[in-house]
Design a protein around this nucleic acid. Structure first.
Ligand SMILES: [Mn+2]
Ligand SMILES: [Mn+2]
Ligand SMILES: [Zn+2]
Ligand SMILES: [Zn+2]
Lengths: 170, 170
DNA sequence: CTGTAATTGCGAATCATTCGCATCTACGTG
DNA sequence: CACGTAGATGCGAATGATTCGCAATTACAG
């Protein structure tokens, strides 16, 4: 499932940021780079186990912390549950997330407004931004319609699959 | 400390949103409305105890959940620790937060760009926004300067006091 | 090939928040 | 202004994602 050239590329990425290329880290990074979903530690652990039956959940957590610190993966929070952390490869590019409270779908969105806000606030106040945690929530078009009609089952379990991205340009 | 007219006003606010006016809720709302800080459940509990020695931490949590649901208080997350929830009265108005990773100070900022992003994304995608969790982090001017000079003690404990707000207008 | 600091796996610990349950109470009704 | 009841409270125990301690292993610079 993990090609040789993928392995080589990831190995190089790790070297570039000064992280030891352990098989666990290679695996975790490969998992995150080949999916379009947003995974939490548990889900990554489940997938990793299929390749390395011995890997430990604590290792997954520690690897994610290192990869995040090194800028190779991004940690995200979705909707109301900020106790559970999700991860995705930063190679997917800068974007934000909208979570549907009806069906749990996560829609990736792109807009220059956030960067613009950072820029303006930075100039006005001398602040030095390093990070912004942005998460939107509400209802996707389908669930919004159902809700207006009163056909939305009140507490759909958030499944956090990923929807189509859209770009607002400047 | 809680004036008679304050009590009456809060009682009316609760009635308007259909919540029973229990003394615990009155107290918690009064505490949140008279401070400029952002308090977590524990901090609210400590302050509330000075007026009602019997109040329970669980009640503080349940009251905050109701008050939030009713739109009287807002829940916030700051910087990296999204496991701890902070609260403030919504009567303070719409604004966002920047947390300094050096000194822990929270600076309130106002910018129309977020609402603009919501508006544009809403039109482009048919999304119905109900909420946005926005938190910025980085370094305040003082800590940024220290950091460039290498004089910033690496791990200042976040204290989450509040700094001056600033408005970027449209 | 070697030495060493970094990493791993395992299980136990954390700790903010939520729950269960028996007891109260706010408040609409007659 | 009692009454009845849905809704609140206080207490302590449970939850559950994440973190830690420690002994054994391993990546990799020299
Ligand atoms: Mn994403
Ligand atoms: Mn604030
Ligand atoms: Zn939906
Ligand atoms: Zn600072």
């Amino acid at each position: 499932m993990i090609t040789q050239e993928q392995r080589v590329r990831i190995r190089r990425q790790l070297a570039e940021v000064g992280l030891r290329a352990t098989p666990q880290r290679l695996l975790i990074l490969a998992i995150l780079e080949e999916t379009d979903e947003h995974l939490d530690a548990e889900a990554i652990y489940e997938r990793a186990r299929q390749w390395d039956a011995q890997i430990s959940l604590a290792t997954v957590y520690r690897a994610l912390a290192k990869l995040k610190e090194a800028g190779l993966v991004a940690q995200r929070y979705f909707a109301r549950d900020h106790r559970r952390e999700y991860y995705e490869a930063v190679s997917k590019g800068e974007h934000y997330h909208f979570t549907c409270l009806g069906c749990g779908k996560v829609i990736e969105v792109r807009t220059p407004r956030i960067a613009q806000a950072r820029q303006e606030l930075s100039e006005a106040l001398g602040l030095e931004f390093t990070h912004a945690c942005i998460c939107f929530e509400g209802y996707c078009p389908e669930c919004a319609a159902k809700r207006r009609r009163g056909t939305l089952e009140s507490r759909a379990v958030p499944r956090f699959t990923v929807g189509n991205g859209v770009t607002i340009d400047d």
